[in-house]
Design a protein around this nucleic acid. Structure first.
Lengths: 188, 188
DNA sequence: CTCTCTATTTGACCAGTGGTCAATAATATT
DNA sequence: AATATTATTGACCACTGGTCAAATAGAGAG
């Protein structure tokens, strides 16, 4: 029984793809190695040949989301419009990302995982860096890093608070506007 | 073997006490019904005679923490000093509570538990209510509820962000000051 | 003082989790 | 064709929350 025919061999990509798929509808703890294996018609043990553990597999997925978030923020800068409006859009964009990818956001910014941690933590830092640059770029005055950090934390609070009680960004869009304005005022 | 002698019978209080003790050093998922039972020299099944499930047991514990948090906020109002200073202290007091009781805070304000939920969610709402009243009381001007809510969310963000990367309030006290000032500015 | 009835506890059990590993079979290499 | 490598299985481990029939300690009744 061991070892499948070449045509149906398991690849890292197949595993990531299936895991990502389930991760879109269920959170980290709800997606089990066994449920992934089942959908791929393999044993869960096989996955451990391709990935050291569950954390490594999910970090692989999360990486893409970090890239996507960074790209979104960049794009917002390049959009048309005045700086002030774009600054608010960066805030809303962050919130949108968080609420439309709640399971991913949780691992990206909320879980202090002892396992793969170093990597995820670094990527989160990089995303914050990007955020800080973007905010400074769009601000009409020179900002203090501590204030940018507070803005970031306040945005994070919004996502963390609405995660779970709302199923997508659009359900919290009004509250998000209000909160973004609140943060803008503090930066002014 | 079943049923112990009267002198060593299990009580709800004994269970809560032991669970609370372990909950101070470990988070919800790290404290198992079995580890509580072991420390109480009983089987884990016995606990289920006194509590419907793990969520009910832990909600019982969490209730006390909600009361304690509310009390802290009240006390801050009655402290000596000017209103502005006290307002900032309410913010710091909330952060202090969150960072000095991270495992509890997680269940109180971060977990959207499907089980006991209704209760915990209500208590969280009540704590927010208390927060809102207190903030309005200490503000020099009439505030909008939406702004108070944004302030709350921003504080929550601080706790959520530093939870896990810091082991107590005192390690984040400087950052907390900065963040409190940031929120004060937005409210002004 | 027994007899019953109820309250409490046990421990085996269930279904699930992440993770490990010897055995094995398909493929590559020689 | 023989050998070495690689990928896969499935049994296994230790753990989780939760359920439940069976058994016993104590309370109350006669």
């Amino acid at each position: 029984m061991p070892r499948k025919k070449a045509s149906q061999e398991l690849t890292r990509d197949m595993i990531v793809k299936e895991a990502r798929k389930q991760f879109e509808r269920k959170d980290f703890h709800q997606v089990s190695m066994r449920s992934i294996a089942q959908e791929l018609d393999c044993s869960h043990g096989a996955i451990y040949y391709h990935f050291k553990n569950k954390a490594e597999l999910f970090y692989t997925i999360i990486e893409e989301y970090f890239i996507s978030l960074n790209k979104r923020m960049e794009d917002t800068v390049n959009d048309p419009g005045d700086k002030h409006g774009k600054l608010k859009n960066v805030f809303l964009c962050f919130i949108e990302f968080g609420l439309d990818h709640q399971s991913q956001y949780e691992i990206m910014f909320m879980t202090r995982n002892k396992e793969v941690d170093g990597l995820s933590h670094e990527a989160a830092n990089l995303s914050y860096q990007k955020f800080a640059e973007t905010v400074q770029l769009l601000s009409h005055k020179r900002l203090l890093i501590k204030d940018i950090y507070s803005a970031f934390i306040s945005l994070h609070g919004f996502v963390s608070h609405y995660s779970g009680s709302v199923s997508s960004y659009k359900e919290a869009i009004d509250a998000a506007q209000v909160h973004a304005d609140f943060i803008l005022k503090a930066l002014d």
